[in-house]
């Protein structure tokens, strides 16, 4: 088992980096169709290897591999990969693979680097509620990441249109309206999964009699507040386009900061 796991730890980052490189060629090359099949195939192989790595880690650790930052990053990258694949099928966003899969590749590289096979989960954390809580949280992170990527692309295209810069990036990006709608959809989905994660977490804490969240840890709700307000303002007051994109990016920045400064999650 160990040699297979070791091989996968090398193979998965390489596969993701190769996939990101193929998607980069697909985006910047005028012969897009030459890379389309290769890109899909490469992504499928990467996801298959990634799934095997997660299963292998679970088998080797005798628990769900969601206990450390490394494991969390690996799972986040896996969800990003799945989300991109779904988005390719449902919203024809293959061209945007570079922008989703490059962050996913970085998460995988960092995740593998930060894996701690000797880490033993404290007994109070051996709960299936915790697993669902983390899965839902990471799913919301992935959705917010997608929204942030799409909003960044919106701002890039907006800038190109305003400055009449009709280069290859301009040509390859989807229409503004599509980027705006997709970003809004992912923000909504992210908010919904984050609410679900909070509810599951609350039930878990109540059921196992654990200490509730500290005020510092509650900073994560700032993220939820930003996205929920963005959604409400969009619905009621027409917050769209550039302004909506900026709010989404602010929300994502808060999400990154709350995790970086260790107010919530794996840093406890």
């Amino acid at each position: 088992m160990e040699p297979v796991l070791l091989a996968l730890k090398f193979l998965v980052p390489l596969a993701y980096l190769a996939t990101a490189a193929i998607y980069a060629q697909l985006f910047f090359s005028p012969e897009e169709s030459r890379f389309a099949r290769k890109a899909s195939l490469s992504l499928s192989v990467s996801l298959a290897l990634h799934t095997l790595l997660l299963l292998g880690l679970g088998a080797s650790l005798h628990r769900c591999p969601l206990g450390t930052i490394g494991e969390g990053l690996l799972f986040l990258a896996w969800i990003l990969g799945i989300i991109h694949l779904l988005s390719e099928w449902l919203a024809d966003t293959r061209r945007l693979g570079l922008f989703t899969l490059l962050p996913a590749a970085l998460c995988v590289v960092l995740g593998v680097f930060l894996l701690r096979p000797d880490f033993a989960l404290p007994p109070e954390l051996h709960s299936s509620f915790l697993v669902f809580h983390i899965v839902a949280s990471l799913a919301s992170y992935a959705c917010f990441s997608m929204a942030a990527i799409l909003s960044s692309l919106y701002l890039i295209l907006h800038g190109k249109l305003k400055h009449k810069n009709f280069d290859i990036t301009f040509r390859k990006l989807p229409p503004l309206e599509k980027l705006d709608k997709l970003s809004a959809n992912w923000s909504f989905l992210g908010s919904a999964t984050m609410v679900a994660a909070s509810v599951i977490g609350w039930i878990w804490v109540r059921k196992d009699g654990l200490a509730g969240m500290s005020w510092r840890e509650m900073a994560i709700y700032l993220v939820l507040a930003v996205y929920l307000l963005a959604g409400i303002f969009r619905r009621l007051f027409g917050l769209r386009g550039k302004r909506f994109a900026i709010v989404v990016l602010v929300g994502f920045l808060v999400l990154v900061l709350t995790n970086l400064i260790g107010t919530h999650g794996f840093h406890r």
């Binding site: 005028p30 012969e31 897009e32 249109l161 301009f170 989807p174 229409p175 503004l176 599509k178």
Partner: peptide
């Protein structure tokens, strides 16, 4: 190849740009 891509008349260029903004 991309030989058929992109508008090569003024009127189609207008349509293409409109699509880039409005989908």
């Amino acid at each position: 190849t991309s030989i058929h891509e992109g508008a090569v008349s003024i009127s189609y260029a207008a349509v293409e740009l409109a699509k880039k903004v409005l989908g």
